[in-house]
Design a protein around this nucleic acid. Sequence first.
DNA 1: ATGTCAATTGACGCGGTGTCAAGTAATTTG
DNA 2: CAAATTACTTGACACCGCGTCAATTGACAT
Lengths: 199, 199
Amino acid sequence: MSRKNIETRTRILNAAWKLLEADEGSGVRMSDIAKTARISRQAVYLHFPNRTELLIATTRYLDEVKNVDARLAASRNAATGLERLEAFVEAWGNYIPEVYGVAKALLVMKDTDEAAKLAWADRMAAVRAGCKAAVDALKNDGLLTTEHSVKEATDILWSLLSVQTWEQLTRECGWSQRRYVNAMKKLSNKMLVARPAAQ
Amino acid sequence: MSRKNIETRTRILNAAWKLLEADEGSGVRMSDIAKTARISRQAVYLHFPNRTELLIATTRYLDEVKNVDARLAASRNAATGLERLEAFVEAWGNYIPEVYGVAKALLVMKDTDEAAKLAWADRMAAVRAGCKAAVDALKNDGLLTTEHSVKEATDILWSLLSVQTWEQLTRECGWSQRRYVNAMKKLSNKMLVARPAAQ
DNA sequence: ATGTCAATTGACGCGGTGTCAAGTAATTTG
DNA sequence: CAAATTACTTGACACCGCGTCAATTGACAT
């Protein structure tokens, strides 16, 4: 409610953000966050009911600060389906590393916590909507491969652009961000665009 | 060592297997495994030093029983690069659901436990070797796309065939196993095979 | 029958989450 | 100015799951 209250709340969110980004989602405890926010551990619970909800709030906060929706929506302005696909791949692909730490924390929680699972599904639904819009635009231009339905093509693009795939390629395989984005552009084209228009 | 000892050990492994398969890796506790193996919780530690090692042993046990290596190696017999790629995709793609529950447990541990991370990396290295062999075979036939190096093509195939991607498509998107394998065959072809020879 | 080995039982420590009660310090409000 | 409200602190504690330990039992082998 009050000014001070909301200020402390955002201090907690910033602390969680910072720590999750540094540790890439692994072992961040409530006490760590409290300490970073210069607050007692118990006081965190005055602002968030539990760890999961704090993580969820942190991702929402991040999305808000980073203005995801606007950045993803920018691809709408593309003139053609091909351009739209490419713009979306670029926008989302470059967004991932900016939120990876926090996203990873939620991704880990997702496997054991129902609320985290829902929150993750919700955010990913937004990404999926972007994927579908790109596929629709392709189809509209008559450039969608005939081998897959719109739903299937959307699923494929969504999987290609999953955080896990990003993680595997950049972390496990050592790809640079640049290389990742370039490859995703090429691959999404190859996978979804009807043959004559490939490239 | 003794007969009884080894028998109990495999009873524990089977219990872990069964439970992980049922719960798909989420909330299986040491006490659950002990109970299923009709043994006291503490007795489990007479056979495995800790939870992580038990999980690792379970995956090894599973791989042994299911004879992964042989099944994956079968694709070596393919005459052409294209056939080899397809055979590998089919072999690995159909193996995933058989071990998913156990693999998922390890996948979750991987984020917080160093030993689990190494064990997972080790198993995935085997898969990667299969991917590389398929890519090499393609290259040998002059059918590897010129847009990617062997290393990059291997990374791409490896990511396409990751357990996480399988999980996303079959669990999140509701794909059947059949559909998954078919799509992976098509997609791996489109992504890696030089244009004129596509399908 | 004696010794060895597998397993049992009960207890305990540890780390992390979440809760509760009592108290304090600052700010607001009558 | 006094009283009430609000944000926060401190210390204690319960719960859960992992891992450990010590003392005991029961089986089997030589």
